[in-house]
């Protein structure tokens, strides 16, 4: 059944983008735009794959991939928060740095094959017609990523940490005035975001394709950044957007398999086109929900 294939594919190929977008969402809620998400994903995909090859254990790979993503984000955090560099320029640079360095270290892994993560059907639930195929026959990282979304929502909107994080993204001086160092909060959010993006990369290489190819994220990190805006900085909407992107990917693959006479280049473009269309549709509503302090540099002075 093609529809359930596409929907299941939406989850499978959307999960990496989804994880990265949740990470970016954390970072942006705290006031830092991280275009280096692409670099974090690539770092995660490569590092996670390498450790899985060496140890044969995909969970160790996941941890390593997350740390690689965090490492790339740490460079961003240092430059942007401590050195007060421009967020966009730094992020772009890190994106290309990620492409380069993973291509360099990843050369020897290109032909490697791994077992990695494989779909784990959930007993009983996976037997439900249609829904079972769509929702309950996925790899462990996909399940975990779905659980992550409500957790993140809870963290952001129901805990003191979440309030601090959002305050850092809205008005740092208020956070500062209540005795908390906004730089620490921002830094932690960026690192956590990089970790999630790294795991997104792991899902791509270790769970979805079981291979490493140079620049295999193909702009997913950038799409993740766009999705955060599309989602008005709301975790559930970012998840929806990521699955939309994933569905377009799955659709493209299905159409190619069916051998329909559509240019593969056009099909390849489709997910990105859809993302642009989604952005156009919601652009008008964006203004009011943008975190006030997004992209701003905090001077560290106590105002007034």
């Amino acid at each position: 059944m093609i529809l359930s294939d596409i929907l299941a594919g939406a989850l499978r190929s959307g999960t990496s983008v989804m994880l990265a977008s949740q990470g970016e969402l954390l970072s942006e809620r705290a006031g830092v735009i991280n275009l280096g998400t692409e670099g974090s994903m690539l770092g995660g995909a490569m590092g996670g794959f390498a450790v899985t090859v060496w140890t044969g254990n995909p969970w160790l790979g996941t941890l390593a991939g997350g740390l690689c993503g965090l490492l790339v984000a740490a460079i961003h955090a240092y430059l942007v928060i401590v050195r007060k560099a421009n967020q966009l320029a730094t992020g772009l640079t890190l994106m290309f740095f990620g492409m380069g360095i993973t291509a360099f270290f990843g050369r020897s892994f290109v032909s490697e094959r791994i077992v990695g993560f494989n779909p784990v059907p959930i007993p009983w639930l996976s037997d439900i017609p249609f829904l079972g195929d769509v929702l309950f026959r996925h790899d462990p990282l996909t399940y975990l990523s779905i659980l992550l979304v409500p957790c993140l929502w809870f963290l952001l909107f129901r805990t003191r940490l979440g309030i601090m994080l959002r305050a850092a993204g809205e008005r740092e001086e208020v956070l500062f005035a209540s005795g908390i160092n906004p730089k620490l909060v921002r830094g932690a959010a960026v690192l956590a975001g990089g970790f999630l993006a790294g795991i997104g990369g792991v899902q791509l290489s270790v769970a979805y394709t079981h291979s490493w190819v140079e620049n295999m994220t193909q702009g997913r990190g950038v799409v993740a950044v766009a999705l955060v805006i599309f989602a008005s900085w709301k975790p559930a909407r970012a998840m929806l957007g990521a699955y939309l992107f994933g569905a377009a990917q799955a659709l493209q693959l299905t159409v190619q398999q069916q051998g329909l006479p559509i240019s593969p280049f056009f099909l390849f473009m489709l997910p990105y086109l859809l993302t642009i269309a989604a952005l156009l549709l919601v652009e008008r509503r964006r203004q009011s929900s943008t975190p006030e302090g997004l992209g701003r540099v905090f001077s560290g002075e106590a105002g007034g």
Partner: peptide, 29 residues
């Protein structure tokens, strides 16, 4: 203060929590 130390995008409760609660990562809403 005359120019208030508040975050417009957050709720009254969240603003108070930011100023008042000190310890722990959670607070009793």
């Amino acid at each position: 203060f005359q120019d208030f130390r508040l975050i417009p995008a957050m709720t009254v409760l969240d603003n108070v929590a930011l100023a008042v609660s000190r310890e722990g990562w959670r607070f009793r809403r």
